[in-house]
Amino acid sequence: MTITLSHVLFVLFGLMVLGGAIAVVTVRNLFHAALWLMLVFFGMAGLYVLLEAPFFAAAQLFIYMGAIGILIIFAIMLTRAFMRQPMPRANEQWWLAALLTAVLLGVLVFLILQNIRPNIMAEAVPESTIHILGVTLVDPTGYALPFEVASVLLVMALIGAVTIVRER
């Protein structure tokens, strides 16, 4: 197996994601943790590009770095108390979180081992993946119902936000 540029890039983006993720959970300053999270999101976008899914790469930048990242930073800034005193890193439910994470890791490893295929990158990705995505999203035999349900979900999120404001 020859090492190509895409292998090198895969390792780089992988390191970016993993290193960033480790930094997110170990860094004391919450604001810095949020910034490390941005690096993770960027690395994920790079991995999507390597998987020949440019739409998802852009969506990753767009939603995760653009919207969710901002939301997280805003949430941190609204809780000022965190900024000055460094909090203990773990709370009393750490064992539950560890258990759940271990279970999730087990399930993921199991699924990956089940579905491993040697030449997955050799299969050509069609140029018009976005068109196929568009067709299946509105096809009644495809994902038409989830598509509309997603809209309802978004509406509920907005109404929930309104309720939070009204309580204040």
Partner: peptide
């Protein structure tokens, strides 16, 4: 501010 960010995320998605 948080509400505006949340509304933005809804429209982004």
């Amino acid at each position: 501010y948080y509400i505006f960010a949340l509304a933005f995320m809804v429209f982004d998605v």
